[in-house]
């Protein structure tokens, strides 16, 4: 069976400080090419997920969890190695990414649905479900800037799951919602797992990873420390201490 998501010896580097990007600096750079120091955000990372598997990414801030998600989303390309994705990917990377504060909740839902690849028909059909799931119906015609961050996350999560992805990538965000919504999200993620969808979740909460994912990947300074079943990796991560 084709893997849903496969990282094969992926290395990603970033330039430390890009500096002011004005014409003068570009010209100077062209005359005297100097190699700016690069920083390895990911180093030789390989893993493979079969359809229906869930992977938890754990590690300190700046360890490379988000870089893995960004690469998997296709927002940037690796310097070395290859990434294969099979199926439609939807990512929840940042609170309200792609949302605009001056548009109403409903308008943002439509724009976001279009960006996630929904057709006109799908967007119209699923609109009710999205609003219902988000639980922010009262505010759906208010501009997004009056929303609390919890309400924003409710809406963003609702659109993302309505896009019916085969691979869902989540970066920490669902923690912003309240208990009720959190429980709803977990339930939704479980039903996704039952439907054979693949999930990658980056989180600081080892409890969440242990509870939701079968597998986990512990990453530190861009390198894999350990990968395996979620229980094993979480136990090792906790044992290593913060």
């Amino acid at each position: 069976m084709l893997p849903s998501l496969r990282f094969d010896r992926v290395t990603k580097t970033f330039v430390h400080h890009t500096g002011p990007m004005l014409l003068r600096e570009r010209l100077i750079e062209m005359m005297r090419p100097s190699r700016r120091p690069r920083f390895e955000a990911l180093k030789d990372v390989s893993f493979e997920l079969a359809p229906g598997e869930s992977l938890g990414l754990i590690g300190a801030n700046g360890a490379g969890k988000s870089t893995i998600l960004n690469l998997a989303t296709g927002l940037c390309l690796p310097d070395r190695g290859s990434i294969t994705v099979n199926g439609r990917v939807t990512a929840l990377l940042e609170l309200g990414a792609g949302f605009h504060p001056d548009l109403t909740g409903a308008e943002n839902v439509r724009v976001n649905a279009a960006m996630m690849g929904m057709t006109r028909r799908q967007s119209a059909e699923r609109f009710e479900t999205i609003v219902e799931f988000s639980g922010v119906r009262e505010f759906i015609n208010e501009p997004l800037r009056v929303y609390s961050s919890g309400m924003m996350v409710r809406l963003a999560f609702s659109v993302a799951v309505a896009a019916d992805p085969e691979v869902l990538l989540i970066d920490e965000v669902i923690g912003v919602g309240d208990q009720v919504f959190y429980a709803k999200c977990l339930e939704k993620i479980r039903s996704f797992q039952n439907d054979g969808k693949t999930i990658v979740l980056a989180s600081h909460s080892t409890e969440l990873v242990a509870m939701l994912c079968q597998r986990a990947l512990w990453i530190d300074r861009g390198q894999i420390v350990q990968q395996g079943t979620a229980t094993d990796v979480v136990a090792a991560y906790r044992a290593a201490g913060p």
Binding site: G74, V89, D102, L103, V111, R120
Partner: peptide, 29 residues
């Protein structure tokens, strides 16, 4: 190097982006 295939509806996307721009620009005038 190739970009991931985006399987969405371009007409619907353009329509939404144009509408978004239009609303943002005129809502406060």
């Amino acid at each position: 190097m190739s970009e991931r295939h985006w399987g969405g509806d371009y007409v619907f996307l353009f329509e939404n982006l144009i509408l978004k721009d239009f609303r943002i620009r005129y809502r406060n005038m």
